[in-house]
């Protein structure tokens, strides 16, 4: 474990905690894309199939996987529950959360069948999960750019999420130099994901660092 990977996983953990805190404390779901959250549940379910094979990598690895699966499902449950507790906000979310996820799912499914480490169910599922994760934030970014404004907690959530995968890139470089091993598929998807976040990072930098209003394009 190198510092980049630890910081990356902690940033990922923090992003989910910020999101849950965001929903629970402000008791509103405004500006949160349920589509992105459902995609993340799919990412974790397809990636962590090895939990069922009980060939556990390490205690840390296992508890983090269980946390990511359970917390991402919990977020979707919270958002679904707002259908009754905040019917108006829920309806607004559905009206603004209009990104066509069908294209993401089809594209990543094709990518998984074409580019994978082994043509087995587990490896295709893993590859699907990695490609899906690289674009899963798109509905959320799309919603954010359309609304033009957002609660700072949502922006911090997206930033922490983007930081996690961006930190994985130096992690892979570190591991390549120390272990001589690199996962090309994970690297390619990680670079795509970092590029997807790049324009958001620029906006975040302007808003949070420069304290200027987040006037999205």
């Amino acid at each position: 474990m190198n510092p980049f990977r630890i910081l990356g996983d902690l940033s990922h953990l923090a992003s989910i905690l910020v999101l849950i805190f965001n929903i629970k404390s402000t008791n509103t779901i405004e500006g949160i894309s349920i589509k992105t959250q459902v995609l993340y549940v799919l990412v974790f379910l397809t990636r962590y199939l090895d939990l069922f094979s009980f060939r556990l990598v390490s205690f840390y690895n296992t508890i983090m996987k269980l946390f990511f699966i359970s917390s991402s499902i919990y977020v979707v449950v919270l958002l679904q529950r707002s259908k009754t507790t905040q019917a108006v906000a829920y309806k607004t979310m559905l009206l603004t959360d209009t990104f066509k996820v069908q294209y993401i799912l089809l594209g990543t499914l094709i990518a998984a069948f074409v580019i994978n480490h082994k043509f087995t169910f587990v490896e295709i599922a893993w590859s699907f999960s990695v490609w899906l994760e690289s674009v899963a934030i798109l509905p959320q970014l799309f919603m954010l750019s359309k609304s033009g404004k957002s609660k700072s907690l949502t922006v911090h959530y997206i930033f922490a999420l983007g930081l996690y995968r961006t930190l994985y890139i130096p992690n892979w470089i570190w591991r390549y130099h120390t272990e001589g091993v690199i996962d090309k598929i994970a690297l390619a998807a990680g670079i795509i994901q970092t590029l997807v976040y790049s324009d958001f990072f620029y906006l975040y930098y302007k808003k949070v660092i420069k304290r200027s209003a987040l006037n999205l394009p």
């Binding site: 996983d9 090895d50 990598v57 390490s58 983090m64 996987k65 480490h117 893993w126 994985y168 992690n171």
Partner: peptide, 10 residues
């Protein structure tokens, strides 16, 4: 042949 990927990362 493909190295059997043991995905040890999250």
């Amino acid at each position: 042949g493909e190295e059997t990927m043991s995905h040890d990362e999250l």
